[in-house]
């Protein structure tokens, strides 16, 4: 049986759909106690990877395990891992409560659990309504309720924010973080870093089926050097003063400011004071994660900028 570690391990995972390589030699691990973001543009292979982890798609090569076991060896998987997947269906004529009771029976938990998870996701008042009349956001909540039925140690969510209103997203964020704080494992995929930036502790960024970055979000932030943008009264005097203090990474920006890397604004201001240079403006550049993310993942389906229309010659009529 599984080892109960709550560890997700993906090793050299590869999936080939005919001539298309959806996932190529992907490796990462997800530990309990934190929320891990699984990021990549649409079509990067996120969904395929998660479905391989959940035993729904057979890998061409490599392994994906939960608690040290492939999905089909988990015994009663519903008690180990809960999943919210895209395109997970509901029978439109079945009520939310009946839907949950079907799977409560399959997992082997008491029927009372169905009402409990309905309350947890805020669908208590819609329990007896048919799912066919649910909004996208309600269906997403019901999918989460289904995933929580077996009180699983590991939670896997594929683009869970789809269809949720801002209030729902905020609620989901808090919910997932507290779930992880209980020592459980949460893996959540998204094609937008900004969407999960405040939720996740770690990220796995993939593009074209391959891992581009894997580690704590903080590490990703630090990988981009912070710069101080300063507008002095005398560019050369400040640059000389900084160089004299051993700061080498100085460049002049097109707008006439200096960009200084590897120092903070206080240090730059002090140098300016000592050199007798006035400062008209100073600013620490914010780390733009979204730009980093874009750099890491760009190029998969890069389009071309539209070519400027050629100048049309007027003439022929007087």
């Amino acid at each position: 049986m599984h080892d109960g570690s709550g560890l997700i391990a993906v090793q050299n995972l590869t999936k080939q759909f005919g001539p298309v390589t959806a996932v190529q030699n992907l490796s990462f691990t997800v530990s309990p106690g934190s929320v891990t973001g699984f990021l990549g543009p649409n079509g990067a292979g996120k969904t395929t990877t998660l479905r391989m982890l959940l035993g729904l798609v057979k890998p061409t090569g490599g392994t994906a395990t939960i608690n040290g076991r492939p999905f089909h060896q988990l015994g009663q998987p519903g008690r180990v891992v809960g999943a919210v997947l895209e395109a997970q269906g509901f029978h439109p004529a079945r009520s939310a409560r009946n839907h949950l009771r079907v799977y409560a029976a399959a997992i082997g938990v008491p029927d009372a659990q169905a009402d409990q998870v309905l309350g947890l996701v805020g669908l208590g008042s819609a329990a007896d309504r048919k799912v066919g009349g649910f909004s996208l956001g309600m269906k997403q909540r019901l999918a989460l309720a289904t995933a929580l039925l077996g009180d699983p140690q590991v939670l896997v969510l594929d683009e869970p924010a789809n269809g949720l209103d801002p209030e729902g997203i905020a609620w989901l964020r808090t919910f997932l973080q507290s779930y992880a704080r209980m020592g459980r494992t949460v893996l959540i995929s998204s094609h937008l870093l900004a969407e999960v930036e405040q939720t996740v502790d770690q990220v796995v960024i993939i593009s074209r089926g391959q891992t581009m970055f894997y580690g704590p979000l903080e590490q990703l932030r630090q990988s981009q050097q912070r710069r101080v943008l300063v507008q002095p009264s005398d560019l050369n005097a400040l640059a000389t003063a900084l160089r004299a203090e051993g700061v080498q990474a100085i460049e002049q920006l097109p707008d006439g400011r200096l960009a200084v890397s590897g120092v903070d604004s206080k240090q730059v201001a002090d140098s300016a004071l000592r050199a007798g240079v006035s400062i008209y403006g100073i600013q620490e550049e914010q780390v733009d994660l979204e730009r980093l993310f874009f750099q890491l993942t760009s190029g998969q389906y890069a389009g071309y900028a539209p070519a400027p229309a050629p100048f049309k010659q007027q003439g022929g009529w007087a």
């Binding site: 035993g55 015994g75 519903g78 269906g89 509901f90 029978h91 997992i107």
Partner: peptide, 15 residues
């Protein structure tokens, strides 16, 4: 057809 098979397989020891 209704894609409920996903949840069925996720809650079953094996197919």
């Amino acid at each position: 057809n209704r894609r409920t098979i996903t949840t069925t397989f996720l809650t079953s020891p094996s197919r």
